[in-house]
Every structure is written in C-alpha cells, then in structure tokens.
Amino acid sequence: MTARLLLPLLLVVVALALVPAVVTSNVALNFMVTVLLIALVGQGWNVLGGYGGQYSFGHSAFFGTGAYVTAILQVRYGVNAWLGFALGIATGALVGAAIGAVSFRSGLRGSYFALVTLAFAEVLRILASVTPITGAGVGTLIKLDLRPEALQFQSRVPFYWIILALVAISLIVARVIEASRFGAWLVAVRENESAARALGVNATLMKVSAMTISAAITAAAGCFYAQYFLFVDSGIAFGPWISVEALLAPIIGGIGTVFGPLLGALVVKMLGELAKLVAGDAPGLDLVIYGCVLILVVAFAPRGVGGVFHEFYNFVSRAWTPAPTPMRRRDG
C-alpha cells in the first residue's frame, strides 16, 4: 500500500469535506448526504459484485438489518446510539456471512445467486412487517433526542461528516482489497472459478469473506439511515428500492473500481433531481430514468461513466503526446 495509491482517495475526500463550507442550503446538503449514502451502499455491493463478480439483488437484507438493529436496540433496549450503530454493522456482517455461506456452499452462481439474495431480502421484509419487535406495519420511530451522545444533531452538517467518514473508510477498504492477495484471488474467482481453484484459491472462502465485508458496509449505510431519518419500516429497510440503488451506482459509475460507486451515486441522484425539476413529482419517473441510463451504460459503456472518463483522458493525453515513444506501457 503506497502513498501513490491513497493520494487520489485523499484528494476526493478533502474535496467532499469542503462541501459544507461552500454549500449552506439544507436542501443541497441533504442532497449530498443522500448521494454519499447511496455511494456507501453501492461500495458495499461493489465489493461482492464488482470485485467478486457475484451479483446480488438483495442488498436491502443488509441495509435493513443495520437500520432495524440500530433502531430497535435504542428504542426497546435503551442501548446507546453509537453502540447500536456498531452492533448494527456487526449484525449486518453476520447476516451477510450466513447468507453467503448458505448460498455459496450450495454452489449457487449467476442468476441463481441473484434470485436467492432477492428471496432472502423479501423474506426479511415480510418478517419485519409482521413481527412485533420491529413495530410490524407501523415501523419503529426513534425518539428525538438532539444530543451528540444520542447520535442526533441540530444541524445536518455533523451527519454529513459522519456519512463522509463512512464513505472514506469504504473507499480505503476497496483500495486495500485491490492491492492485496485477497483482492487478487477474489478477482480470479470472478474471472474463472475453476482456474482459481486449481491454483490453490479457496473460492468459497473468498466469496463468503467478500459478502461479509460487503454486508458490513451496506449495513453501516442502514444504521446511518435510521439515525438520520429517525424512522424505519419494512418497506424502507428491506424494500427493493435500496437493492436497486445498491447495484445501480457501481454499474453506472464503473463496476469493480474504487470510485465507481461514488461517481455512479452522484450521476444517479443528479438525474433523479433533474427529473423532478422537469416533470414535477411524477411518481416513478426517476425509476424510468434510472432504467434508461442503466440500459445505455450496459450497452455502450460497460466500464461505466468512470470508464468513459478514463478513455477520454487516454485519448486526450495521446493527442497531446507529440510522437509515439517506444516505451512499454507500465500502468496498473
């Protein structure tokens, strides 16, 4: 892990940290919080889907676990919010490990894996909508208690710092995975599982580990959501909307890359806002737009918006280079 690898990451986080200094409107700050929330969920999905090649349609299972554990521990057991946050992440990771172990040990791949994750999420959603401990159909409301000890704040700015810190950690996690043996083996499993196994890679262990990390990151987003909005119900926590956004952001931004989910979240949310401006609050219009963008990206830019930028950069730098130098390409 060299400074060269972490520098771009640091620059992006510093640039994002300056946002509250420039932007003072609550609406704009709220927008940025939403972008970072989706970036975090997307990075979670990206660890498993992007690097591991295992496409989940049910990441809401982890988001919802984080959200509910945080809320229920506070409301029903009087647990401190910060501790509840940490326990929410840990429980999300456990759920990820369990679903991963069950699915991957029974050899589920491709669309079968996607469908099973979707089924797990739906089962959790239905359970949450009927069991008393989650507040069933009514949902769980976290009591207003505007003190930092309770992880609640008068202004949106501290929330922005918290979600930015979580995103920064998720970026570092992705970068560390990329530069490690675990990451190399995970990508090998994505590219060709049989070949990886023949070279000593325990494919099942790689996939279950990736799913655990992935679930922990996504659960962190769920914990944040509960704390930010102080309300959780089964449709929000385990509904398909978050599973869709989780995969939309990295696929549009650049799957299997460190910055893909962040870039994708920004693009997706900006398009969503644009749609509202143009067409008012036509319900479902943002989903139509997401669908169109997804089709365009998959058809014309399989490496996402980030990939398009990258190619554009290469094109420009080649155009600016006076003569082709006989040097071997040496970038990673």
Partner: peptide
C-alpha cells in the same frame, strides 16, 4: 481457462500468491 480480463502478469501472480 485464462483470467480473461487480467494481464498475463496478473494471471501468473494469482498462482505465485499461494
């Protein structure tokens, strides 16, 4: 059975990582 999207160097490194 290559790791198709990886470079030759990265392909061989997967084994070397063992």
């Amino acid at each position: 059975q290559p790791f198709a999207d990886l470079s030759v160097h990265e392909n061989i490194a997967i084994g070397a990582h063992l």
